[in-house]
Amino acid sequence: MTARSAIRGLVILFLCATPVSCEMFEDTKIDPFEGQGAYFTMYGFLDATRVEQEIRISPVRRTPEVIRSPTDDNAFIDAAVTSTDLETGVSVVWRHELSQLSDGAYAHIFRSSQVPRPGRAYRIDVVRSDGKGSSATTVIPLLTSLSEPVRSQFREDSGILFQDIALPGVTLAANIEVFYDVTDGGVSHFFRVTRSYDAEGAGNGNGGWQFTLDLSRDAAFVRTVAEPVLGPRLSLNGMGVRVRWADEQWPLVDGPIDIEILAQPGGLSNVENGFGFIGSIGDYLRFWDITDEAMRAALGLDGSDPAPR
C-alpha cells in the first residue's frame, strides 16, 4: 500500500464522518451504531518532543453535525478528558477549547501541558457526566543505547556526494533533522547548522528506517549559513540526527509520512467504546564525530581555504 492510497482512504473515511454523502465513495452502508457502546471519536497523538499536547474529541452521533458557530447547540460537549501514566498512576486533566479549523468550521480540541516519557504507557479517558465514555492507550516509543545510526561510506554519483543513514528501531519517521557541527578551523568557535529532511526515506526491512543524505547540497548550505559567522575556513567536526518517530501502532505506508493526516479517524482504531486513533511520537537524538579526513576534504569542510568559486 502506498502513502498516497493510504492517505486517500483515510481522507475518504474522514469525509464520511461529516455531513457529506458517502455514496460517491462506497456502495456499502455501514452503521457504526450497530455494535452500540460507542461514545466518542478520539484522534491525535502524544508527542515526547513537545510540551503542549492536543487531541480532537467528537461525541458519536447517528447524524454527523458540523459546528458552524460557537453558539450552535453542538458547540457544547459533555466530556472530561484525562491522561494517566500507567506506571506512576499520575493523571493530568486536559482543558477544552472550541477551535476554528481552516475550513471555517469548529472542533472540540483538548489540550494539556506535559512531556510524555519514552517507554511509558498512557491511557486517555474521555468521560461524560453520566460516567460513560471512551478510552485509548498508547506507548511512547523508546530506543535503547544499542540503536545507534548505521552510516555507510560516502559515495559519489555524477559529481554529487551521498551517504546512507539507517536508524535501527525507528519504524516510521515523521520528521528528520540533520545537524552539522563546524568550527572556524582553529577550533576556537563552534557553530551548528540544521538541515531538514522532512520525512524522507522508508523502512529498510530490518525493523528500521533508512534515508540518504545529499552531502554536497548540505555542505553548500552549511557554508552559506556558517561562513558569515566563522569565516571561510570551516571544519566539519561532528554530525547528528534528530527524528520524530511513531509508535508501532501506526499504519505502515511507503513514501513520505504526514503524521497529522494519518492521525485522522479511519479504519485503523485503538479506541475502546468509540472510534478513532490515538498514537504517540518518540524522540530519537544521536551525535557522532567526523574523523574521515577524505570526507571532510571532499566536502570542502576540512579547515583549509576554500577553492575559488
Rank of each mutant, 00 (worst) to 15 (best):
E148K: 04
A246I: 12
G274F: 01
L86E: 07
G279L: 01
E227S: 14
L46Y: 06
W209F: 06
G267T: 06
A307Y: 04
V271R: 01
G104Q: 05
F76T: 09
V222E: 13
T138S: 12
I176N: 13
S188N: 14
R123V: 09
L143K: 09
P168A: 01
S196Y: 09
E23K: 11
R223E: 13
D103H: 01
W209T: 07
V81L: 06
G104N: 03
L101R: 05
S102L: 06
H96A: 06
T171D: 10
G159Y: 11
R244K: 15
S91L: 02
L143N: 08
Q249K: 10
N204H: 03
G300R: 07
R192K: 14
Y39V: 02
N74E: 07
V150K: 00
A136F: 07
F110M: 04
P228T: 14
H96C: 05
S5R: 10
E87N: 10
Q163R: 15
A79E: 08
R117T: 15
T2C: 11
A246H: 11
I124R: 00
N74S: 07
L13E: 15
V193G: 08
T28D: 04
T194D: 05
D247V: 03
F14H: 10
E87A: 12
S196A: 15
T194L: 10
I261C: 02
I109Q: 09
G274M: 01
V193F: 10
G35I: 12
P59E: 10
S147M: 03
Y197D: 14
V81F: 06
L146Y: 00
G300A: 06
V225D: 15
F40H: 02
L86T: 09
R8H: 11
L13N: 15
D47Y: 06
S83D: 08
S304L: 06
V182I: 08
G119C: 07
V170T: 07
L301T: 07
A220W: 10
G131R: 09
G279E: 03
L299Y: 09
I290H: 00
I160H: 06
F179V: 13
E227H: 05
L101M: 03
S135D: 08
A107Y: 03
A105P: 00
A17H: 02
A294Y: 03
L299Q: 06
S129F: 02
G240E: 14
F110P: 03
F191A: 06
P116W: 11
D157A: 08
R4Y: 13
G303Y: 04
A226F: 10
G303N: 03
